[in-house]
Amino acid sequence: MSKMHIHTTINGDQVDFLGSPQQSLLDALRDEVGKLGTKEGCGTGDCGACSVIVDGRLVCSCLMLAAEAEGAEITTIEGIADGDGLHPLQEKFLEHAALQCGVCTPGFIVAAKALLDRDPNPDERTIRYWLAGNLCRCTGYDKIVRAVQDAAEQLAHPA
C-alpha cells in the first residue's frame, strides 16, 4: 500500500513522515517518528496513555489517523519540558510520588498540561473529571490529583 507524506510540527520541530492511510497517529508517532514516550494501553481510546495535544486539543492518538494530523501542531510528552528544565507538572509528579510504574504518566502529564492550559486554577472535582479519561492502576489517583493541584499553584505563583 502506498504511503502518504504527512507534514506536521511536533514539539516545535517541523517533522515530515510517511504513514500508511490506516495508520493511527499513535503508531505513526511511535513507529515512524520515534516518539516512544507516547504509550499504548488499549488502542481503543479508553486509557489515555497515548494522550497528545493536537492544535490545542487533548486527543487519544490511538483514535486519530496519522493522515488527519496533516498540517497539525502536536505536543507529546517529549515536548512538555522547557529547555533543560522540567515542567512544573513533571516536577510535582516526582515530588508527590504521583507515579509508581510510570507507564500512564506521560498520558497524565500531557492531559494535565492540556487542562492547566485551559483552566489554570481547577478545583479537585474538575481535575478528577478532566483526568477521568486517563487510567492509572497503581496510585489510586490521590497523589496524581495532588501533584496537578500543586503544579497549578506553582504555575500561578512561581517561586
Binding site: C42, R125, Y129, A132, L135, C136, I144, V145
Partner: peptide, 15 residues
C-alpha cells in the same frame, strides 16, 4: 476492554 471492564477512574474516587 477497558470501556466495559471498568476499572476505577479519577472521578470515581476520593482522596
Amino acid at each position: 476492554g477497558f470501556l466495559d471492564y471498568r476499572v476505577p477512574v479519577a472521578s470515581d474516587l476520593p482522596m
